[in-house]
Design a protein around this nucleic acid. Structure first.
Lengths: 82, 82
DNA sequence: TATTTTTTACTGCTAAAGCAGTAAAATTAC
DNA sequence: GTAATTTTACTGCTTTAGCAGTAAAAAATA
């Protein structure tokens, strides 16, 4: 299921559901406990790859949505790089 | 439409479709040109809010997907904060 | 209740993100 | 073809993310 929602709430909810403490999640994700604390506090000046590490542990996928999105492969077939 | 894809390609594609240069997009997003260059180059150690600024200009939404996602509002109704 | 665990909140430190400027390479336009 | 634009790539600089450590506040547990 796909929904638009702030990261803060998503992380906290999934962490709780996983029965993890902030420190526990941080260790599993390979980040400092401060990152989890800050994210759940609502801080968004967190590096994208750091957030990815956390969401990976929690089994949360990041998707991008736009009207043009489905045109990428079809019109730009040569861009197999990147 | 929703798809899982790397930010790099998404940004470059949408920027081109918008007829913007890297500098042009950077200015509209209020970030440095280096950010656009790095993002399109594939760098992921970019701050989340910085990416948001860029994607906002390009009309790209970030969604989060997980099996638990639809349970958030229902089971955690009091969390209207955050 | 008291005790343990967890969360919040601060610290000083190191590494690096983000910036503007410049210049060369590549692309596009004429 | 040349000229203009755009992209790539590098600078030095300032700000800050992320880290571990500590401690107090809050929450959970016995």
């Amino acid at each position: 299921m796909t929904r638009t929602m702030n990261i803060s709430k998503i992380i906290k909810f999934h962490r709780k559901k996983s029965g993890l403490t902030q420190k526990g999640l941080a260790d599993l994700a390979g980040v400092g406990k401060t990152v989890i604390f800050n994210l759940e506090k609502g801080k968004t000046s967190v590096q994208y790859d750091t957030i990815q590490k956390v969401l990976n542990v929690l089994n949360v996928k990041i998707n991008f949505e736009s009207p043009l999105m489905n045109l990428i492969r079809e019109t730009d077939e040569k861009n197999t790089n990147l």
